[in-house]
Design a binder for these strands. Sequence first.
RNA 1: UGACCUAUGGUGUAAUGGUAACACUCCGGUUUUUGGUACCGUCAUUCUAGGUUCGAGUCCUAGUGGGUCAACCA
Length: 554
Amino acid sequence: MNDSLNFIEQIIEEDINSGKHDGKVLTRFPPEPNGYLHIGHAKAICVNFGLAEKYNGATNLRFDDTNPTTEETEYVDNIKKDISWLGFRWKEELYASDYFETLYQYAVTLIKKGLAYVDDSTPEEIAAMKGSPTEPGTNSPYKTRNIEENLNLFERMRNGEFADGSRVLRSNVDMSSPNMLMRDPIIYRIKHEHHHRTGDKWCIYPMYDFAHGQSDSIEGITHSLCSLEFIHHRPLYDWFIEKLEIFPSKQTEFARMNVEFMITSKRKLLKLVQDKYVDGWDDPRMPTISGMRRRGYPPMAIRTFCDKAGVAKRENTIEINLLEACVRDELNKTAERTMLVIDPVKVVIKNFPDNISEELVMELNPEDENSGTRPIQFSNEIFIEKEDFMKDAPDNFFRMKPGGLVRLKHAFIIECTGFSENANGEVTEIYANYFPDSKSGQDTSGLKAKGTIHWVNAKNAVNCDVRIYDRLFTHPSPGEGVEDFMEHVNKDSMTVIATAKMDPGMLKYGKSFGKQFQFLRLGYFTVDPDSSTEKIVFNKTVGLKDSWAKEKKK
RNA sequence: UGACCUAUGGUGUAAUGGUAACACUCCGGUUUUUGGUACCGUCAUUCUAGGUUCGAGUCCUAGUGGGUCAACCA
């Protein structure tokens, strides 16, 4: 597809070429099971799984569950569902908590080497001794505690003899390091908490820095890919591997992907849900994977998007245009076409016989020769889109206008002969004549219609709900330049339309959640789980490009 | 008064010391029974100052801008 390599691919190829790890590539995706996956995670998933796939390697799914107070099994299931939906398969499903005993022994090893000590200081004291980015820290009075005492104390920590927060195990590195993370970081803390997997077996839990890299090493992860914010952790990551003399996994950092009009902060997302600005984590406006799924974004479109966004180390904000282009591109190839009228007005075709209907043929997807067709019924009363008719139309308006010709998609050319309107000047009904010899596919009329519009047979049309979504935020970088990001929430991000008309044959898709359609000339839509076989609810995924909208502005 | 990362069109990513390119957007056009798709075209780019070199977007130094780091979170 593209023969230029990103910087991680270059590293991997160098490693393969030099015979490192026998040319094997093993990556990992390490979510903490305390929230829902979002577009940013999708990027990390694509990078980790994608690279492994490209280099004939594999990827472990490892839940980073070292903090029992925030983690739940419910999230584990959703995370697995999201990754699978994106189309990736992990080699092994693992948990950092699987390694608690090994990690404990690693800590003992460190203590025995004089590289870790039990600190009785309070959290406040430890913070004070940390120093600041510009000032070195100071040594804890417990830093010189002897090995025997440390071993004894650490064992008693494990045995539950001490209260939460009363003691910690710290690594013995360097309190004067310019890297704050090297200033004797805490590696074990006491938490008398129930863990979602280990239950009440443990009351001490390792910190991220003493779990993540070690887990990588235990699994034999060759390339541990993470976001840039962890770059300061790398010296520590390497330090533990060196001192513990364990498998040398290598951490490589790349920049997180930001997307215009989207937020990925767990706290902010939660606020939107709790304050009911959206209808749950899978609301189609949410940047969560479950939200995008419900919105109708195809998994392949999300993967293509992440690929096209690229991998590098600088701050970036990807235009939402690119995501929507990927979605359209995918759906154009795959979505079944049908006609639906969102804002209907009736057209009466005066020279078409009443009480009969004519069966016409509609192609399911012009981009796919094998997609087939479906029959549709034409009669003397149809609905068209209100905005496809203009009383006083300019020359560049190619749709329906008095005295003008227009093609009804898959049907006939009609000529508008008049209309009626109410006291407010709103058009209530339109009149037309059709040309029997202008039928789609067998047109012998010689007539030319500049425009083609979609329609629905009014004689048997049924109502459905259509939910139209707009951006969740009014600013491409929500929260920028204002005190509270909520100031940028778009209050009109969802419009529910209950007047839409469709062919009754569509009712059979009432339980086909996620089924995708292109409503001709309107956009891509998908069946929402709120649907039933009595009443379908469609979510608008994304509109078609609309060059008429641009033309109108001129 | 620290350390680390980073700087290429509007956006993102390439160019691995040798003609700055690709995608999306924008704008214009061709085709079209979706004002969609497809196709073609236009505009537009190396933060600044020094240095090394026959030659620097690339290497070096300094500056400037942006980002990150002081949770018993991950």
